Amino acid sequence: MKRTGMRSASLVLTLVVSLVLVLSACGKSNNNEGAASPSASSSPSESASASPSESASASPSESAAPTVDGKGKKIGMVTDLGGVNDKSFNQQAWEALEKISKDTGADVKYLESKKDADYEPNLNNFVKGGYDLTWGIGFLFADAAKKVADQNPNAKLAVIDTTVDAPNVESVTFKEHEGSFLVGVVAGLTTKTNKIGFVGGMELPVIKKFEAGFKAGVAAVNPDAVVTPNYVGDFSKPDLGKLAAATLYDAGNDIIFHAAGGSGNGVFTEAKDRFKAGNKVWVIGVDKDQSIEFGNDITLTSMMKKVDQAVYTVSQDLLSGKFQGGLANAKELGLAEGGVGLPDNNPNVSKEILDKVEEFKNKIVSGEIKVPTE
Rank of each mutant, 00 (worst) to 15 (best):
G138K: 09
F139V: 01
F139G: 09
F141S: 07
F141K: 00
A144L: 08
K146A: 14
K146D: 12
K147V: 13
V148P: 00
D150L: 14
Q151V: 12
N152E: 12
A155G: 10
L157A: 02
A158Q: 04
D161T: 05
T162A: 09
P167H: 06
N168I: 14
S171G: 08
S171F: 09
F174C: 10
F174M: 07
E176P: 00
E176F: 14
F181N: 07
F181K: 02
L182N: 06
V183T: 14
G184W: 06
T190S: 11
T190H: 05
T190C: 07
T193F: 11
T193K: 04
N194H: 04
N194Q: 09
N194W: 10
F198C: 02
F198H: 02
V199A: 05
G200F: 09
G200C: 06
M202L: 12
P205T: 13
P205N: 09
V206S: 10
V206C: 08
I207H: 00
I207W: 06
F210T: 01
E211D: 11
G213C: 01
F214S: 05
F214T: 08
K215M: 04
V221N: 06
N222P: 03
T228W: 07
T228N: 09
T228V: 11
N230A: 15
Y231H: 10
G233Y: 08
G233P: 06
D234F: 14
D234E: 14
D234N: 13
F235N: 05
P238F: 05
L243C: 00
A244F: 02
L248N: 00
L248T: 04
L248P: 01
Y249C: 07
A251S: 15
N253C: 13
D254E: 07
D254W: 02
I256G: 00
